[in-house]
Structure formats: C-alpha cells, structure tokens
Design a protein around this nucleic acid. Structure first.
Length: 959
RNA sequence: GCGGGGGUAGUCAAGCCGGACAACGACGCGGGACUUAAGAUCCCGUCCUUAGUGGUUCGUGGGUUCGAAUCCCUCCCCCCGCACCA
C-alpha cells in the first residue's frame, strides 16, 4: 500500500503542478482566498501541525470544485531569534541540536552549512514547502511564497507601519521589559528559547514606599500598597548590609541586590555608602500617607533579594508581620540587644483596615490563631498570606480608617492609593521577576527600562469599536470564538511593536535602530500575497515598492500615471496589480491554531481595520485545535514526533488527510495514535475495493434499489453542501467515506447491478472525495476513463428531483424488518427452517392513517382518535379490538417527532415490497421467507402471530 | 487572579439553537460466512433484561418541560491562553 500511495502521490502532484491548476490568476469567476497563519520558522514541524494546513487545502479544493477561483498562498514567518539561536547552536555543534536535525532527516552534509541565521531560514523555507506542503499535495500558489525576512516583505511592512503612524496608532513611552544584562531584550516564555533558566517567571510590580528617617529614606517594597493605612512599624533585617543610594535630592536605603536591579530601571542612581541593618533598628521612620512616625524593628524574614529587603509592617492583614511581632514581643534578649523598649513593642496593635467577608477586622491575626502557627519559618505562613490576599482583594472593602478610600473595593482602592502616593512623591514603581531568570549566555535577566519604546495603540477606542462591529458580520469559527472575540478586542491594549537586540526582521521605518517584532509584522500580510508573485517573478523590482506604490495598489490613493512616473513601473502593470488586489481581497478565511485567539487574530483584525478601507476587511476566521501526544505535548518518546515525510510514506498522504478531516471536530484536541491512522488507511482500501466492485457491475436492468441509491447520493450531496457552509470537513468526510460507502455496500448486497447507476454513482462519489483524498481520487477518476483532473471537476450538487423519498422509506422499512428478524433469531437461538411475515390488516392501516392525519393537523389525542375510529362503521364493528388499537396507536404516535411522523406518512405498499424482496430476505437470513397479509385467512399461521401485525411492523413467525 | 474550553457507554469520539436517543462512527471484543488453515474481506452482536418487549443510562445533586446528553442553578474534576512568545 505505502509504496503504491507514495508513487501515485508523486505522479499526481507532478501533473497538477505542471498543469498549474494550483495557480490563481484573476478571471471572471467569483474568487475565494484562504490562508493558514504562516508558521514561525523555528525548526522542523511535526505531524500535529499538518492538521490545520490540511483543513485549508481541503476547503480550498472544495471551493475550487464549486466554481471559485481559489487563491491559496503560503509563506513562513522568520522574524525573531528562532533561526539565530538555531544557527548558533549548530555552529557550536550542540549535540542535542545535531541529533534533532538528523532525526528529522536533515542530510548530514547540509548541517555545516546551517551556521548562519539566513542559511537556516532558507533551508527551512525549502523544507516547509517541499517536505510538508507539496508532499501533502497542497494546491497552493507557490509563485506567491513569501517569508518575513525577504527584502520585499520588509518594504511592505515598512509601508504598513507608515500607515499605522498616519492613523495616529504609533505611540512612544517608557516600557519595562525583561532583558539580559549582556545580550539585551529576551523573551520570558515557557519554551525558554532565549533562556537557560526561569521560563515561567512573571514580572511583578512592587510599589516602593519611602519612609523618612532623619536625612535618609528607608524604601520598602510592597505588593499591597492599599494597606498603608494599617502600618504599625517597619522591618529591617539586622544581619543585612544595606546600601545608601542617591536618588535625585534623596538618599535611599535599600538592599544591594535591589539597587543593582533598580539601576536598570531608574536613571541616575548613585551608590554612596552602606549601612548595617542593625544600625537602623530602634529608630523611627515617618510612614507615607499616614505621616506618623513608626518604630524600626528587626525581622529575619526581610530578605535582601526580595523587593528592597525592607518591609513595612501591616500586622492586621499580613501574617508574616503579625507573626514577627508576636515573636519579637516574647524575645526579651533581642529587644535588649537592640535597645528596644519592651513596653513600646508590646503596645503595638494591629490596625484594622479592610472588611473581608468571612473574616473579622484583622484577618492575619485571626488566621494565625486558627492555623495555630507559632513559628516564623512555618511554610503555612505563605499559604495564609495567599489566602488572605485572595479573599481580601476580591471581596474586601476598605473601612473607615482609610480616609477617602473608605467603602471602596480593595481592587479599586489599590490602584487609586498607589497613584495618590506616586503623585505625592511618596512612592515609586519597581519591577522585579518572580524567580531567578538566566539568559542562554549565562548572565542574569533583569527588568530593564526602555525609555522610548514604540507601541501600537490597539486600545484606541474608535479602532476597537469599528473592529468589534465588523467582527459581528464575519464568519468566525468556532461560534464560541465569534462571541469571545468581542471581549478579546476590548482587552487587547497597546502593544510594544519593536525591539532591539539580536533579532531578524524589518527595521522600523522611523528609527532603524529598532526591529519590528514578531507579532507586529504578521498582521496585515495576507494582502501582500495578492502581489508577492510580481516581485518573485521579477516583474516588480525592490526599489519600485515605494510608499506611493503601496498607497496606490492597496488603498487606491494617487494616480497610475503619477506612480508610474515616480517608480518606473509600467502603467499597465500597476493597473493589473491594483485590480488583482481588489479582486482577491478581502481574505475569506484566515485559519490558525488556538494559540492565535488572543494574540494574532485580534492584531490581524485591528490592523486591517486601521489600515485598509472597509471593503477589504477580512470575512472569516477559522480556529483549529491541536494534535497532542499521549501526555500533553507531542514528543519523541511518546510518539507522534516522527517527521512528516516519514509519516506520509508509512501511512499515505491521503490516509493522513482523511484522519485530520475526520478524527474529531476541528475545535477539540486529539491525541496522536497511530492506530487511528491505520484505521483510516484501511478505510481508504475499503473504499477503493468497493469502487472496483461498482466498476465491475454490468447489468442493464433497473430496479427499486437503483432509484434508492441515486436518491441517497443526491441526499449525500445535499448534506455535504450544507455541512460545507460551515466548512465542516468532518461531516463531509462522514458522508463521503462512511455513509456513502455503507449505501453502496447495501446496494451491492441488495443485488444492485446496473452499469448506468454504477457509473453515475462513481462519478459523484469520486468527486465528493477529491478535496480530502485528492491523489486516490485522481487515480480512481482516471481509472474510470474520465478526462481531466477530478481536482478541477465540478463538485456534485444535489438534484432535488432525483431524491426519491418513498424509495428510501421503503428500504429503511426493509432494513427494520430484517433487524427484527435477526433480533428474534438471536434471542431465541432458533435456526430457522422457514419464516413467515404478516403485514398489517386493512383496518389497522385505516386507523393508522386517521391517526396520522389528526397528528398532522395537531389534533391527535387518545379519546379523539377513539371517537374518530368509532364513527366509522367498518371499524366500529371490531369493537374493543379497534378501540385498543386506536389507543395504542395514538399513544405511540404522540411520542414521535415531526420528522418521524412524516416518514410514517410516506405511502408504502408493505405487502408488495416485502414480497418483491423475499428472495433477498431469504438469502440474508438463510431460510425461506414467506410473506402474507394478515387479512389473508388462508395463510398458514400456526401460532396466530398475524394478530400482532401492525402498520410498518409486520408480524413475524419463525419455525 | 483574569479570560476561555471540557467531563458521553471498554477506548477514541459525534450529538449539545429540547423531541426519529440506548444515543452516528471508529477501534477493541464476541459470533457467523468465506478459506485446508491463518490473515484479509463480508455480515450480525456488544448497558441489563427479552420472540422483535421492557428497564436504567450521557461527571454530581437539584430545577424548568408533556418530553433533556441537549436549557437553568449547586458542587466535584480536568485542560488551555494571559502579551514582545509564534
């Protein structure tokens, strides 16, 4: 199988591309443009990535067969440091990296040539196109391929940023970002591409509180600025040597590590001396906001590398503070050592500041008592702190102690109090990382101030509203995302759009020391595909891609003669490009993985709305979920990490494509399991065998079953068309590979043998399959003697007048009867010698049809039906028997759905249908089947079973 | 914390704008046909019970309804995103 599939895959791909059916040129047909969000070039991809890409090709193929002029371009996203870091590791001959490359099929002799970032980019651009996308038979327009580090792409991005600037959406302000002290900006993310340690660290924002103490300022760092009204004392670690730092006119006391970190965030800090913690103890410091002197007391829990190493004490709400106070009170020796007055220490009382549901006025005091904590090193202190903070922050309100903030919710008060203190010069902000982060180079990563960072102002209210309004008219899948995108667009704020440091990408047009970062240069790009081939094929030169050129072709601004004169581009070419843009744009579908929901898609949407006229705004988004490994991420040890070309060779591309399309809804993760692909592979074999059987049918005679199959095929076509309105490939695959196969098998089993029927069905069936399993479909199409590619044949449309409801109902009826016979045989264990069927007597059918009529007009009730039945002489004669049957019929029918009632209303001559099918039934059950009417008094009926016969439910007697 | 998704029979997985549901389908398992045999293939079955009937099911506990896997509420348990990372 696999050798054969590999051969036909190569054969048809070569033919398609030679015939250029994958290339899109403007013509008279309606257009359809679809992309997948291009992948970041970070190395080899795995079989999971092919899921979304395959959806795109299958949808594109379907639309093409439906008569659309389909534009399906592809590209790659090389911006960032993925290629840089990979090249670096290859240069260093990092063993893991080399092993990874070899395992993915990288030729050994190529590796030495992958030591420069752009070599890596160029190499993987080839890998993605040839080993993944062409290997899967994608009908993408390869001429339009682009990559974000290409110079022409850069021209486009620079133009985009000029337009953003024109729209007033570029702003500049200070920003605090993680950076290696050596290498510059780094990204802190779990995959640790830039890091050797600390990928899960978070940036925390401390509020620095300044306490005047003589001519010094003791500077405490807090995460809870709203608690300043509850301050009772100040904590200093007596064992630590703090530093004195000049900050403007002030002299600050902070820990040495915090000074080092702070020096990356605040300008002009100057180290001017040191001071021992123990020297400060016993002094008083004036607390901010409350402006009261509070005593400076010793505490071992103040760590120099957390915050500033100095802590303000709020014992009412901070368990650490209350615990330390309790311990100090008892510690006569320490108080004596630091010359503290025990009376004064013991006089310190927590000050209630927050009313929290479920707590008294002093949660920390309460919590420590309740948990019975008596030791300052008890790990439960941390737990208590978290719990109190969580409850206080979300359910608490500031009490009357808190001046103008009294009554506010804690989460509101926090921001307000912080702002008030900063405005009053009593506080500043300081950022730190929640855990140690180390750069790949081995140096520490700190939060560094970037004074002149550029942002895209996605928070712009007019932009947000316009985008939200437009989204309501878009086709966004899944429906949950259609709803959620509204909230995401609100939440999507200003975003840093450039960075410095070791980074591939396009220089920022207004200041080339900056490089446009990865999210920001991948938002408007689908429109670039409408023109990229003009540069790729040499018709458009790099230097001709000027601002006026883009203004003209994308925005319709300026005139052709002016732009032609300014750029030297042929006026005819300019017009052609402009018309291409207007023809292919807007984008009909942008498909991307679920990771894009809160980052790429909102940026994609807002950039379109910001830069382009409304008629070019996108029409659809499709979000797909992942293929995962057994335990979360796909991995080599757990399976699934096998290279894409290897999987294609082993299972066959079409089996994989069918797997992606059918294994689950696109909006759920699936677990990679080779057994699944094997079963799709054998499904394809069954389909092909059945196709062969159909081709072998030579009969001329038409029977009910022919009508039935044609009717079914048209139903299938209708179902697929309906499914594909929502791009539901799974339903399409279900119809084409499961339902249709079952229908055809039933046809053959029923003795269907008509060459015309077979030919018609085959033609429809193979076309139905072409979008998902195109190679095998082409092979079958050719085998049927068809001319041309099935890939560009018209997709089957349902012919309504060929749908034969009675024929389908009759077959369902027959199948029901068979299943009843089988049930009886199974339950009784009888090996039948003969089987008798008795169809319902005339009078029961009459009752049934009266009931159906009443049901149709909504008047069916048990007494109603009984009355109607009794009003007919012929039925009334039967007395109780008729009344009982009427009751049963009415009860049964009332439980049925509308659709079911309709089905029962379809006329069916049971007796003749069963009689006509008795040979088939006999063959199936392995015993002669005789069919009688219950009205036939001469029929043999040893056990009087005929009495049980009902409409659509013949009585059965097995001998 | 904020925001989002999900829990369906042995496994995977449809259904989820209420009604054809004991619940599509696949895999697994059991039986039969075919075959010298195995495999493949084709049929039948696979919650309990049963001459084709009936009963109990869709994380938990309630509720709405003539009727709920599908709608509402409680609780329990999993998963994902949160920004310079594509």
């Amino acid at each position: 199988m696999s050798a054969w599939t590999t051969a036909i895959e190569a054969k048809w791909q070569a033919k398609w591309y030679a015939a250029r059916i994958n290339e899109a040129e403007r013509d008279e047909r309606p257009k359809f443009m679809i992309i997948f969000a291009y992948p970041g070039l970070t190395g080899y991809l795995h079989v999971g990535h092919m899921r979304g890409y395959t959806y795109v090709d299958a949808i594109a193929r379907y639309k093409r067969m439906c008569g659309y002029n389909v534009l399906f371009p592809v590209g790659t996203h090389a911006t960032g440091n993925g290629a840089i870091s990979l090249a670096k590791r290859i240069k260093e001959r990092d063993p893991k990296t080399i092993e990874y490359l070899l395992a993915n099929g990288c030729p050994e002799d190529v590796i030495p040539h992958l030591t420069e970032p752009m070599d890596v980019v160029n190499f993987f651009n080839e890998v993605y196109q040839n080993q993944y996308w062409r290997r899967f038979g994608f009908l993408a327009d390869w001429r339009r391929f682009t990559s974000t580090t290409n110079p022409d792409y850069g021209k486009f991005i620079q133009w985009q940023f000029r337009k953003l600037n024109d729209a007033g959406l570029l702003i500049q302000k200070p920003y605090f970002a993680p950076a290696c002290v050596e290498c510059g900006p780094v990204a802190i993310d779990a995959s640790e591409t830039d890091l050797s340690k600390g990928g899960s660290a978070e940036t925390t924002e401390y509020t620095l509180l300044k306490f005047r103490c003589g001519d010094l300022f003791l500077v405490a760092a807090t995460l809870r600025p709203e608690t300043v009204y509850g301050q009772t004392n100040f904590w200093v670690n007596p064992e630590v040597e703090y530093v004195k730092v000049r900050r403007g006119d002030e002299t600050w006391v902070i820990s040495r590590p915090s000074y080092e970190k702070m020096s990356y965030q605040k300008d002009g800090l100057e180290l001017i001396g040191t001071v021992k913690g123990s020297e400060l103890i016993g002094k008083e410091a004036v607390a901010p906001v409350i402006h009261r002197p509070i005593p400076v007391l010793p505490a071992a829990f103040a760590k120099p590398d957390v915050g500033t190493g100095l802590v303000t004490s709020v014992p009412s709400d901070a368990p650490d503070d209350w615990m330390a106070l309790l311990l100090l009170r008892e510690n006569e020796e320490a108080m004596a050592r630091y010359g503290l007055d025990p009376e004064k220490v013991r006089a310190i009382r927590p000050i209630p500041i927050i009313d929290t549901k479920g707590y008294g006025p002093m949660p920390a005091v309460e919590m420590i008592e309740k948990m019975g904590i008596t030791d300052g090193n008890d790990p439960r202190l941390e737990e208590a702190k978290k719990q109190i903070y969580k409850d206080g922050f979300h359910t608490g309100r500031m009490n009357e102690t808190c001046a103008e903030f009294a009554g506010l919710r804690v989460d509101e008060a926090k921001e307000l109090i912080k702002k008030m203190m900063i405005d009053a010069g009593e506080a500043e902000v300081f950022y730190d990382l929640s855990e140690e982060v180390v750069c790949r180079c081995g140096k520490p990563v700190v939060i560094k101030k970037v004074p002149d960072q550029w942002f895209i102002d996605y928070g712009n209210p007019a932009l947000t509203e316009a985008t939200k309004a437009h989204c309501r008219s878009m086709h966004i899948l899944p429906p949950e995302f259609y709803t959620n995108v509204q909230g995401i667009l609100d939440w999507f704020r200003e975003r840093a759009c450039v960075r410095q440091g070791n980074w591939l990408g396009t220089p920022f047009p207004f200041d080339p020391k900056w490089i446009i970062e990865a999210i920001s240069d991948s938002t408007l790009y689908p429109i670039y595909y409408t023109i990229s081939h003009y540069h790729n094929t040499g018709l458009l030169k790099l230097e001709q891609m000027t601002e006026e050129f883009f203004d003209l072709v994308f925005l319709g601004e300026g005139t052709v003669p002016d732009v032609a004169a300014a750029t030297g581009i042929e006026p005819g070419l300019l017009r052609r490009i402009r018309e291409d843009v207007l023809y292919f744009y807007p984008l009909d579908i942008n498909l991307g993985g679920k990771e894009h929901m809160t980052v790429h898609f909102p940026a994609f949407l807002k950039n379109h709305v910001a830069v382009l006229p409304s008629e070019l705004w996108p029409r659809g988004i499709f979000v797909n979920w992942y293929v995962t490994g057994k335990l979360g991420k796909i991995s080599k040890s757990k399976g699934g990490a096998e290279p894409i070309p290897d999987a294609a060779g082993r299972f066959g591309v079409d089996a994989l494509r069918l797997y992606y399309a059918h294994i689950a809804a696109p909006f759920a993760d699936v677990e990679w399991d080779e057994g699944n692909i094997e079963s799709y592979s054998s499904r394809m074999e069954r389909v092909m065998r059945t196709v062969e059987e159909l081709k072998g049918l030579k009969g001329k005679e038409r029977s009910v079953i022919d009508q039935w199959l044609i009717s079914r095929m048209n139903n299938r076509a209708g179902n697929i068309a309906a499914a594909m309105d929502d791009y539901d490939l799974r339903r399409m695959a279900n119809e084409a590979y499961f339902e249709t196969l079952a229908d055809v098998r039933w046809y053959i089993r029923r003795g269907g043998n008509n060459a015309d029927t077979a030919a018609r069905v085959l033609s429809m069936w193979v076309r139905m399959m072409a979008p998902i399993t195109p190679h095998i479909a082409e092979e079958m199409w050719e085998g049927m003697g068809q001319k041309g590619f099935v890939s560009i044949a018209p997709y089957p449309e349902p012919m309504v007048d060929e749908i034969d409801r009675p024929a389908e109902v009759a077959e369902e009826y027959l199948a029901d009867v068979m299943s009843d016979i089988n049930e009886i045989l199974r339950v009784t264990g009888i090996s039948p010698k003969r089987i008798m069927l008795y169809t319902a007597p005339e009078w029961k059918r009459e009752v049934h049809s009266i009931a159906l009529e009443m049901a149709a007009e909504g008047s069916l009730t048990v007494p109603g039906l009984t009355k109607a039945v009794m009003s007919r002489d012929g039925l009334k004669r039967r007395g109780k028997e008729a009344a009982d049957f009427a009751r049963k019929t009415a009860e049964d029918l009332m439980k049925r759905s509308e659709a079911e009632k309709k089905r029962l209303s379809v006329k069916l001559d049971e007796l003749s249908y069963l009689t006509g099918s008795s040979a088939f039934l006999s063959k199936e059950v392995g015993a002669p089947v005789e069919v009688y009417s219950a009205d036939d008094d001469s029929a043999p009926d040893p056990q009087k079973k005929a009495r049980a016969a009902g409409p659509r439910r013949p009585a059965i007697y097995v001998e």
